[in-house]
């Protein structure tokens, strides 16, 4: 009886010691999960997911704080790829967050633009050119259709049009 108790206690202590040792000795791994999630996102930094950009959103997904369906520009395809990477079930895109997609670009109505320069700093991809007091223009090849500039125009002269129109 006594010897059995001693042997079991010794075994438990020995295994504990091994586990503590391996925990100390194994190198703490980097965090490649965030990198891989970010590489699947469109990286147009439109912030429609509610985070400051794609990297913070990827970090939130990795930490389990955000769902994978919050990226309107990425669409269902991104949700599917994220679900595959993370081994989760694909969920429907959250359509309440916005409808931006890469098929549309912003266009500034030059007759109404007052050159206020408010839309330039909010553009995440620097697709709007022009300085104060001059009429602005959108570089269609850079524009991602993220709609962030629309709310900042005081004269409402920015529209989204089909990319090839």
């Amino acid at each position: 009886m006594l010897i059995g108790t001693v042997v079991l206690a010794g075994l438990a202590l020995g295994l504990c010691a091994v586990l503590v040792l391996t925990d100390r000795l194994l190198p703490a791994g980097k965090d490649p999960v965030t990198d891989r999630i970010e590489s699947l996102l469109p990286r147009i930094q439109c912030a429609q997911c509610g985070y400051a950009g794609c990297r913070p959103y990827a970090r939130a997904i990795a930490a389990g704080e955000a769902d994978i369906n919050r990226c309107p520009p990425g669409g269902e395809e991104t949700v599917r790829q994220l679900a595959e990477l993370l081994g989760r079930e694909a969920v429907a895109l959250d359509t309440t967050l916005g409808s931006a997609n890469m098929n549309r670009v912003a266009r500034i109505d030059e007759h109404n633009c007052i050159g206020c320069n408010r839309c330039v700093p909010v553009c995440p991809v620097d697709a709007i050119v022009g300085v104060q007091q001059t009429i602005h223009a959108v570089i269609a090849a850079h524009c991602t259709g993220c709609e962030l500039c629309l709310a900042h125009c005081p004269v409402d002269c920015i529209d989204l049009v089909a990319r090839d129109a």
């Binding site: 586990l19 391996t22 925990d23 194994l26 190198p27 703490a28 791994g29 965090d31 490649p32 999960v33 891989r36 990477l85």
Partner: peptide, 10 residues
């Protein structure tokens, strides 16, 4: 658990 957490977080 330790090994997968440290060597393969994914």
């Amino acid at each position: 658990e330790q090994m997968t957490r440290k060597l393969s977080p994914l």
